[in-house]
Structures are given as structure tokens and as C-alpha cells.
Design a binder for these strands. Structure first.
Lengths: 260, 260
DNA sequence: CGAATATTTGAGGCCTATCAAAGTGAGTGG
DNA sequence: CCACTCACTTTGATAGGCCTCAAATATTCG
């Protein structure tokens, strides 16, 4: 199921070095630093759908940069319930916490076929220490996750099922690059069970809530593709404030490169 | 209510420079770097209980290091509900996100009388760029927050009211330094309303849940002081895994100082 | 000591969970 | 190319945890 170091058909043109990674695209990394990142040798790994990449409670010695496909972080409670605190899309680091923490307090699992680049923790720390821009980029990644987790906590704590689902769809539309526009459309490779574990509901209720959104004309689905006919209306239902994500996306595109 | 630059009685012996701050105590900062931090001039600010430090949606130009007292970050939804994603205790940075993000997506408010040190964002970034240990410490702070937020998301999404409350008490016992021991006791300056907004319940239900914990002998309260007679039992109810916090606390005390 | 704040109690209702089973669709092997 | 199978989605009925609204009691603080 898992091959190491081999890039399968369809993935040849994908990201192969850290310089093509979100880490280097944030705008904090200078051209010189970026060149240094390009020279770092990193192994690639291909994951089959559903494959576990990090086991909850293990001590991974590498950071996994997700370069293709979707994945998720999850925590299983003692009585067997699962919560997904983070959905990972290409560009994210699967286990950013392990840059500094030894133990992974969550598991990581692929949703679709996915590829990751493996960067040993020690090397990541050395890069951050040597290149201030890289260090700042790591900090930025962590803070961006914070912002998303914070919104997530608000949703789980204070929003209705309908708003949570709507919020998730708004968030993903922006994160995957479809934008906050009418008729935004994107591929959502999540089963209703995964959605349920993400927004803290049961699969059955996710199903009903989804029907509600569809009946109200707030979303349309064809297979795994979601379309948002009227973004502002969905956004209002969701109580979605694009600000936090816009800041993040902006940082990813055109953050200032300050003198170091 | 707020005086700038003045340290009131009872606070004279408190933290006055960044070198005494958690930032410098994490173990990532070398002695040289620490000396540099000690020389950075920072203004102090005293906050009365309930005083707002950062307004949701504003663009603070400084980082606020909480040196005494408790505070919290909060988000208010469109329909007026409030969620507290982060409780801040001395040592934390009130608005760490603003190290990199311009806009504060959450508000910050003092719970008790509190003091903060103000470090302009630009200076913080410069320090991080110049001193790798400082940069790494910032990254560590962000990741530590991630770990806590992740657990919080799990609780809000998948745990019962009883477990959430128990979990909060376990977490705070460790974070304030009372440890995971029987008869751990600490001051909890939170009203039931604040607890409700933290764990995503109504104040009424927090009250009832608290009575439940008391009746079961899992906690005892005298005024604002909480005692945990039997930590393992409470921990089991809470499904509390001390691991994530232990890693964090360990980092705060004895993290390796690597060569830069 | 009085006013404001916080905690506690009570009754009733709603949102979401639970349990169970029927449809639906995609992928597989003959 | 067609059954077959497995996973996923959908539907139905019932239950329960937490919310809502309201008011009484306790506590804090000036």
C-alpha cells in the first residue's frame, strides 16, 4: 500500500522539494533561503486512501509535508469517539507539533491517495535556526493553525449543526482556493462520517443537515463536488468571517519579506 | 482603571523584563540571548478585572505578555454567544497570533487584576530573526497553544458536559502548577458563566454539572479554591491524558538548548 | 447594610443522539 | 457486461442531554 521514495503516475509533476512547499511560499523566505531549501534532500512517500501516517501517541522523528491529496489529524477518546481537529490539504504539515514535541498527541491518516515529503525533525530545526525566514515560516504555520483551531472551537462550542456544516464548507472553499464567490465549486473528498467527526456530530445528523442545506439551495452536490450557488447567504448561515482565512491566504501569497 | 508604566503594590516583585518571561524560560533561549532579552525595554500595563485588553477585530501593534493574573481570549458570534478558546495564565502571550497576523480575530479580557508587558510586534519579529532561540521559543509557544486547542476541540466535539468540566479542571491543575496529584488545590478565579463559555455550555448546566462532580466527591470547592481529592478518578471521568501538557511543561523547564 | 453579581433550583422543550433498516452507488470478479 | 459485494447515504422512530425561561437564594463589595 505504501511505497517509499517512488512517485507514481500522475504525481510526477508534483512538488518534489521543500522550496515548492507552502513553507517557502509564504513570503517570509528570502530567495537565498529558498535556494537552500531546494537543496535539502527529502524522501517522498505515497499513501493509499485511508492509510495511517502517524499513530496517535507515537514519536515520529520526521515532519510530513503534505504535497498532494487530503489527510486529517484525529484523536480517539477513551470510549471510542473520534474527533478530527484538523483537515489537511496540500501545503500543510501533517504533524507540525512534532517540530518541537516528541510525542504525537493525535493520529494522522490519509483520506485520498496522498503524497508527503519527509523532513527529519533535527534538520527542520537546524534549517529554522540557520535561516530566520524559515523559522518565521514555521511560526507562521503554527499560528495559522491556531487561527483555524480557534474558529473550530467557536463552532463546536457555540454553533448549531447547520452553522457548523455551513462554516466548514465556507472554510474549505477558501482554503482549497475556490474563493468566497458565488458558484464556487470544489472537490470535497469527505464521507459524511468524516464530516461528522470534524464538526462533532453523528453521521446521521450530518446527513439530515446536509439535506437541509441542499433543500434551502445553499449548496448543491454532484458526487463529491460541492457548489455554493450563493456564497454570502451560506456565509451568513455559517456566521463565517472570512477575515481570519484571508489573512492567512494573504500571508501565503504576498507576505512581506523583511530584512533579517 | 488602566495605568501604563506603573507597577502597583503587590506587583513590585513581579516579572519586569522579557528575560523573566516564559519566552525566555523555555530552555530554547541561550544565556546570551537571555541577556539580550533582559535589555529590551518593555512597558508594563495594569489591568483591572474585566478590562478589555484587545478588541475583537482590532489590529494591535504589540504583543501582550501576561505576567500576573488571569485573562481569556474570546470570540462573539453574530447571535451574541461567546466562546472562550483560550484561558490565559501568567506566562502566556495574550495575542500570540498578532506576531504574524495583523488583525486580532478574538478579543482579550482580564479576569482578575492582571499585568502585561507590551512588546511591539516589529521588535518581537526582529528579536526572533536575530536570536534563533527566541524564534524557536515563539514557535514553541504557538505549538503549545495548538496542542491545548486541539484537546479543547476534542472536548467540545466529543465529550459530555461532565467530562468537559472535569477535563478543564485537570488541565488547569497542571497548567497552574498544582500537578496531577491527589488533593491538588488551586485558585480558580472563574465564574460559572466564564466556565460555561469555555466548555461550550450554559451557566445553568455548568452549575448542575459542578454539583454532580461535588456530590460524587470528585472535586471540592471553598470559595474560589478547587481541590481534587482523587486525581486519577477525576482524570478518568475527564478522559484526560496528561501527556500533551507534560510535554509542554517539560519544555518550559528543561528543553534542550541546541547549538545555533 | 444595601445593591449588584453570582449561584442555585424548577419546569418544560428542543436539538441532536441512538438504534435499526432500507436504498444507492461504485468497484470487482466471473 | 452483469451480478455481487461493500461502503456510503438515506429514512424512520424514539430517547436523552442540554437549553431556555424564570425566580429564589447566596455572596461579594462599596
Amino acid at each position: 500500500m505504501t511505497t517509499a521514495g517512488t512517485i507514481p503516475p500522475g504525481h510526477e509533476h508534483r512538488i518534489r522539494t521543500l522550496a515548492d512547499t507552502r513553507l517557502a511560499r509564504l513570503g517570509f523566505v528570502s530567495p537565498v533561503e529558498r535556494a537552500a531549501l531546494a537543496k535539502v534532500e527529502v524522501a517522498a512517500r505515497l499513501l493509499a486512501p485511508g492509510k495511517e501516517l502517524v499513530r496517535q501517541g507515537s514519536t515520529p522523528d520526521s515532519l510530513y509535508f503534505l504535497t498532494a491529496g487530503w489527510a486529517f489529524r484525529y484523536v480517539v477518546t477513551r470510549d471510542g469517539a473520534r474527533q478530527i481537529p484538523t483537515l489537511l490539504i496540500p501545503g500543510g504539515v501533517c504533524n507540525l507539533d512534532n517540530l518541537i514535541l516528541e510525542r504525537a498527541d493525535f493520529g494522522v491518516r490519509a483520506i485520498t491517495t496522498a503524497t508527503v515529503l519527509m523532513l527529519p525533525r533535527e534538520r527542520a530545526l537546524a534549517l529554522a535556526a540557520k535561516h530566520p525566514g524559515v523559522g518565521r515560516a514555521f511560526t507562521w504555520l503554527a499560528i495559522a493553525e491556531n487561527a483555524i483551531l480557534t474558529q473550530w472551537a467557536v463552532g463546536l462550542g457555540r454553533r448549531s449543526a447547520l452553522a457548523r456544516l455551513a462554516h466548514l464548507i465556507c472554510e474549505l472553499s477558501i482554503r482549497v482556493g475556490s474563493g468566497a464567490i458565488n458558484n464556487a465549486s470544489f472537490d470535497l473528498p469527505l464521507t459524511q462520517e468524516l464530516i461528522a467527526d470534524t464538526i462533532g456530530l453523528t453521521p446521521v445528523h450530518v446527513n439530515r443537515t446536509m439535506q437541509h442545506l441542499r433543500a434551502a439551495g445553499l449548496i448543491a452536490t454532484r458526487g463529491r463536488t460541492v457548489t455554493i450557488p450563493n456564497f454570502p447567504r451560506l456565509q451568513e448561515i455559517a456566521d463565517f468571517d472570512a477575515g481570519y482565512l484571508h489573512q492567512i491566504e494573504k500571508g501565503a501569497v504576498a507576505a512581506p519579506v523583511r530584512a533579517t
